[in-house]
Simulated assay, not measured.
Amino acid sequence: MTRGQADGVRAVLIAGPTASGKSALAIDIARHWGGAVVNADSMQVYADLRILTARPSPQEETMATHRLYGHVDGAINYSAMRYAADVASTLESLSQAGVLPVIVGGTGLYFKALTEGFSAIPPVPDAVRSAFRARVADIETDQLHAELSRRDPGMAERLKPADRMRIMRALEVQEATGRSIASFQGERHPGPLDGLPLLKLFVDPVREEVRRRIDARFEAMIAQGALEEVAALRERRLDPLLPVMRAHGVPGLIAHLDGALRLEEAIARGQSDTRAYAKRQVTWFRHQMAGWQAVAPEAAREVAWRALAERR
């Protein structure tokens, strides 16, 4: 049993906007308290984009055990339900080894799936999804919304006519199950951390500092080979609606590779998209995730150490 488990804390959860320094904090906690770093970032699960998603470097991965990073192929439409199942099996193996899980990332939906459970929407079979998307590939979004209005008027009223991704999701579930996606949303499966004693920290930096770090990091990722990484992804000709194809920076860099944007413009687009995402992350946690302790980056280590020590 580790010191973290001995004090009653079954897992440490660290969230925060991108470029807030939360990954370094997770490694620090894992090294000191006998833990393993477990990913909670919906883009860092993909094998295709180590650099562009700012996954821990190979050197950082030698500093502590890392789980659920880069374990999913980009062609897979990975979901919060599948993530929760992967975490559940990871938690079991870590518990058997006496290792404290330190779960870190910026995907609020992943943390909600772990702590509050998730809707019982069945996965859409790949064959059904592929056939459906091939049929509607050339259909405009407003026409898809009209189709949803005919098949599931209640759900169509809840979705914006221009929200292609959610419209497609609703139609795919209808196609696969014959039921409205809304009919599943009231049914929930418990999350693997539901009811357990947890230390939940939200690293909340000054906004301007996050913006500065995002811009600098994106330029550094380009220098480290992010463009070549996206070029390899582009060659796979994957469905543009797949999550990996919508990772911050990917659309702009693909547009550059297609000759539609100068590299400087693609970089600026990636930086802008990432800054907007960081703002949404902060808003999400402030309004959706009750019971988290917001901490400044420079105080996070002291707060974590004190909280863990007090629970011994």
Rank of each mutant, 00 (worst) to 15 (best):
L171G: 00
D215C: 04
A182W: 07
E147W: 13
P161K: 15
A137W: 00
V173T: 03
I139T: 15
E187M: 07
A220H: 14
S149T: 15
Q174P: 09
S180A: 13
G105K: 05
P205K: 08
L114Y: 06
V99W: 02
A120S: 10
Y110P: 04
A162Y: 14
I181Q: 12
R151C: 00
L114W: 05
I103H: 00
A127E: 15
L198I: 10
V210C: 01
I121N: 08
G195R: 13
S130Q: 08
R217M: 08
P123E: 14
I167V: 15
F184E: 03
M165E: 12
R179T: 07
D126M: 14
E172I: 05
L148S: 10
A120K: 11
V124P: 03
P122G: 02
V87G: 08
A176Q: 12
F202H: 06
A113Q: 07
I222M: 02
I214E: 09
R179Y: 08
V99H: 00
A182L: 14
V206C: 06
T177A: 12
R188M: 07
H189N: 15
V128A: 09
H145M: 02
E175I: 06
A85T: 12
A84E: 02
P161G: 09
R207D: 03
I103F: 00
A88Q: 15
T141F: 10
V206L: 12
L100E: 01
M221D: 12
T115H: 04
E187P: 01
A131M: 02
R150N: 12
P161M: 11
E209H: 10
K160F: 09
M155D: 05
P122R: 08
R158T: 13
T107F: 06
P122K: 05
P190L: 08
E209W: 14
R129S: 09
L199N: 02
R164S: 03
